[in-house]
Nucleic acid binder design. Structure first.
Length: 908
RNA sequence: GGGCGAUUGGCUCAGCGGGAGAGCGCCUCGUUCACACCGAGGAGGUCACUGGUUCGAUCCCAGUAUCGCCCACCA
């Protein structure tokens, strides 16, 4: 027997000491590196590329924890697992960040010029990107660093150009004069989803146009745009206005005469039923203008400043509004004013500025056929969205998508590969083509929406348009793990472009493609998680001051604790609430594992030994192996369905409640091989039996070995540190997963359930808990030995467990003058205790009465049910039987309790 | 204006057509040789409200209320 010496293993886990060392080891051994030529089935995940705008936040930590857990498990299962890392240039977001940096020095990007500015952004990218990579290492991300990509690296830029050219040639990219969302601060076009709507306070003003019988009143929230009105529209069937259609009215403040047109888009119920039409500054009006061939008058520049000649020229749009209104009032034109008037107003997602609808020439993707294909792939099951209820949102969006404005008036991003000649010729240049030669050709100055390149991520990162081994092996990727908040931004667009690029066509498009439609999808499953929230369920934000820096938690609690906190809260599609108490609890769990392993190591746990046959094991050994079998199957299944929270919970409770709290206590007699708790060892738990001791050391080693493997995907560092100590193996990362494994991989020996052992130990647990409760009620200190007899135990399944029970309960052998003062009955055993003092009759009576009323309630409920013929007739037999058993048990309990209550006053 | 989801102990959340669960917090006790980042015991909930279906509803259905999220070109 190994003497339990004070040891070099400290009693507390110190993450900082372990994490860096373990990560370097994994990396040096190439344990993260996937092999495109490997025979094992492939499993691949591409990282949702973090923006190079700053550093990772706790939401990234959640995403990375879940992905890493999936990948680590698959790797252990024997898959050829790849987690491909990389980052996103994040066009407008990054440009804004760098512009803000410049602004600190009083500079604008125009002071630097395009080339120098872009160079400056690259410097920023290097710094921010470096920080992000460092954070990923701290988190323990098992990414294949040899395959790291960036959306603007050479290969990906070639993929962007390739697909742009193909879309252009297919007529799916076009350039058009349209009303688009314009940010007057960022000075660029935005797509619909880059606009956030909020209900803002405005004013609804009713203005009279024209005079006399031909006058018409219109309602508007934006009086300043009337400078650009070119019509008034009414509904064709509106009898109030039918006589006016075709006439002209005079536009106030300008004297221009504009026509009254009839258009079905007008809602006769709203306002006055007549609407002013400003085709250059409102998307609806633009459409009306098109239908009626109205001129478009642009009265605002790109910064939102009025350009129309007259008294308002040079005013900002928000200054112009009250000015125009005042002028209208002066003219007696204002019929009614309603304020406050709440209405949805669009804001730039990146800077919050109110978006201005602006007529301009932009590039668009014609999304019709692409979106149809993206919807169909989910509809026909080639791609599964998890949890399924989020698929409804996906369909809503994909099935009714507007054309996608992809040009941005920015400098940071992929330059649009189109060239213009002075004569108006337009040439789209492919990746291997030279720009057109000759005088005066100019490339389009705009760049592409950052989501354009993100949409190619699952295949551009694998080498597309080249026919690479990586692409052949790892596409389609297995799972896409990301937050539901970017379902539209990213997931839907990857679907559109993945299917477009990777579906074989006739004639073939550029790059390799798949003839099997199921192999063309960018990923087979989309696993959506939620947002990280604070302990009150509130969204984290800098203004609330409730954000969490993952590095701060990693420094203070360890990466494993941080990961466990996030994973334990993760349910598919729902948000995760975290707080410092939670991560402290997770840190405690790490420490619990640490000490369980420390105990095992000190007691000669032997993971390498052959497991003895059940007959040669103690009941406790058989029980914990059976419980391990159960929790292995359970956790395995839960991980498979992205139920990280439940998997963590199952493992946590097994490790703490069953393995540590009961099994380690029960194993002590066998391990110590001698005196334990002051009592001689008993046979059932193998005390004093060398064979049983060896068996228990083997079981202890095996259970801990498998448990560490099961927890490793979520808590990689502490499990690896402990596992290597315990087994002498190189890394648990490379060990076999105890549950299901990949085809062709070799599994661990299966464990089976042992229900007899489970029942026996559960009975022991109930008895021990009952007596502990009595001791606690009586104020007996846990450490104080109490002489007691256990009568009737020989006739119960607990017959062999008397020593264990005595030890767990600190019950001493009855000595001379043994005089029991109280008894506790449970599991067919009567425990008579000599408390050496009068027991607290009040406490005992209260306890017994409480138990009695609970038992009576049980009897009443069961009787009521069983007295109901419909219940007996129609309920499942098992349920009826269960109630009969409950009734009998409760009745017996009542008899016992009444007896003891009656005996109570006689007790000493 | 549409759509989706939620409402369970103090807080955050599981659960589910047959006697309400966890973590944290709270109370009591504790220097038993893995761990005080611990151990033992305990208190605490008419499962939002109203109806319906059912032998039986926290669970299914309808409505109400409150909250949250997503989408939206009604000026």
């Amino acid at each position: 027997m190994t003497a339990a010496q004070p040891t070099e293993i400290p009693p507390q886990y110190a993450p900082a000491e372990v994490e860096g060392r373990r990560y370097r080891f994994w990396e040096e051994r190439g344990l993260f590196t996937a092999d495109a030529a490997a025979a094992a089935p492939a499993f691949s995940i591409v990282i949702p590329p973090p923006n190079v705008t700053g550093t990772l936040h706790i939401g990234h930590a959640l995403d990375h924890t879940l992905i890493d857990a999936l990948v680590r498990r698959r790797r252990m299962q024997g898959y050829n697992a790849l987690w491909l890392p990389g980052m996103d240039h994040a066009g407008i977001a990054t440009q804004n960040v760098v512009e803000r940096e410049l602004a600190k020095d009083g500079l604008s990007r125009h002071d630097l010029g395009r080339e120098a500015f872009v160079e400056r952004v690259w410097q920023w990218k290097a710094a921010s990107g470096g920080a992000i990579l460092g954070q990923m290492r701290r988190l323990g991300d098992s990414v294949d660093w040899s395959r790291e990509r960036f959306t603007m690296d050479e290969g990906l830029s070639r993929a962007v150009q390739t697909i742009f050219k193909r879309l252009f040639d297919d007529g799916l990219i076009y350039r058009a004069q349209r009303i688009i969302n314009w940010c007057p601060r960022c000075l660029t076009a935005l797509s619909d989803i880059e606009v956030d709507h909020t209900d803002d306070e405005g004013e609804l003003v009713t203005v009279r146009y024209g005079d006399g019988p031909g006058a018409v009143e219109v309602a508007t929230t934006r009086v300043e745009t009337m400078l650009g009105d070119t019509a008034v529209a009414v509904h064709p069937d509106d009898p109030r206005y039918s006589r006016l259609v075709g006439t002209e009215v005079e536009l106030p403040l300008s004297g221009r005469r504009i026509p009254v047109v009839a258009d079905p888009h007008v809602d006769p119920e709203f306002g006055t039923g007549a609407v002013k039409v400003t085709p250059a500054h409102d998307p609806d009006d633009f459409e009306i203008g098109r239908r009626h061939d109205l001129p478009s008058l642009t009265v605002m520049d790109e910064r939102g400043v009025i350009t129309a000649h007259g008294p308002f020229q040079g005013l900002d749009r928000f200054e112009a509004r009250p000015a125009v209104l005042a002028a209208l009032r002066e003219d007696g034109r204002v019929v009614a004013e309603r304020r406050p008037y709440l209405h949805a107003v669009g804001h730039c997602q990146r800077c919050g500025t109110t978006v201005e609808p602006r007529l301009s020439l932009q590039w668009f993707v014609k999304v019709g056929p692409l979106a149809k294909a993206a919807g169909d792939a989910v509809r026909d099951g080639r791609v599964r969205i998890h949890p399924p209820q989020l698929a409804a949102r996906y369909f809503d969006w994909v099935d009714d998508m507007h054309d996608w404005c992809i040009s941005r008036q920015l400098w940071w991003g992929h330059r649009i590969p189109v060239w213009y000649s002075p004569d108006g010729d337009v040439v789209c240049v492919g990746p291997d083509e030279e720009p057109p030669a000759g005088e005066g050709w100019r490339q389009d100055p705009d760049v592409l929406d950052t989501w354009f390149s993100s949409a190619l991520w699952p295949f551009s990162t694998l080498g597309w348009p080249d026919d690479t081994a990586d692409l052949r092996t790892f596409y389609p990727t297995s799972v896409l793990v990301t937050g539901y908040d970017i379902l539209f931004f990213w997931v839907a667009r990857m679907m559109m472009f993945g299917l477009y690029a990777m579906t074989a066509t006739d004639p073939p498009g550029p790059g390799p493609a798949r003839t099997d439609p199921a192999a063309a999808v960018p990923f087979r499953t989309v696993a959506l998680h939620g947002l990280v929230r604070d302990q009150y369920g509130k969204k984290m934000s800098k203004s609330r001051g409730n954000t969490v820096d993952p590095l701060d938690w990693i420094d203070r609690f360890g990466a494993d604790a941080t990961r466990f906190t996030l994973a334990r809260g993760a349910s598919p599609g729902s948000d995760v609430a975290v707080s410092e108490e939670w991560v402290a609890g997770a840190r405690n769990f790490c420490n619990k594992l640490w000490n369980a392993a420390r105990f095992a190591l000190l007691n000669g746990a032997d993971a390498a030994a052959e497991l003895p046959a059940p007959a040669a094991l103690t009941v406790a050994d058989r029980w914990i192996l059976s419980r391990l079998a159960a929790v292995t199957a359970e956790a395995d299944e839960l991980f498979e369905h992205f139920e990280f929270g439940k998997a963590c919970d199952a493992l946590y409770h097994f490790a703490w409640d069953e393995f540590c709290d009961w099994y380690l206590e029960l194993a002590k007699p066998a391990l110590s091989g001698g005196v334990w708790g002051g009592s001689p060892p008993g046979p059932a738990l193998g005390g004093g039996d060398p064979a049983a001791a060896a068996g228990t050391r083997a079981v202890l080693g095996h259970v801990l070995d498998r448990l560490l493997r099961l927890i490793h995907p979520v808590m990689p560092f502490v499990t690896d540190e402990l596992w290597t100590h315990l087994t002498g193996g190189e890394s648990v990362m490379a060990a076999t997963w105890p549950g299901r494994i990949a085809d062709g991989a070799s599994a661990m020996p299966a464990l089976s359930r042992d229900l007899a052992a489970e029942a026996e130990i559960e009975a022991l647990m109930r008895l021990v808990t009952q007596v502990r409760r009595f001791r606690s009620d009586q104020g007996l200190r846990p450490s104080q030995p109490v002489p007691a007899t256990l009568s009737g135990i020989e006739a119960t399944p607990l017959a062999g467990h008397e020593t264990a029970i005595r030890a767990l309960l600190r019950l001493a052998a009855p000595g001379e003058g043994f005089a029991p003062t109280a008894s506790v009955q449970a599991e067919g055993v009567t425990v008579q205790l000599d408390t050496a003092a009068a027991i607290d009759l009040g406490a005992e009576r209260r306890r017994l009465e409480k138990d009695l009323s609970a038992a009576r309630a049980d009897v009443e409920a069961a009787e009521r049910k069983l007295a109901n013929p419909s219940f007996v007739e129609r309920a499942p037999q098992a349920v009826v039987d269960k109630n009969r058993e409950r009734l009998a048990a409760a009745q017996a309990e009542i008899a016992r309790l009444e007896e003891r209550l009656a005996a109570l006053p006689q007790a000493r």
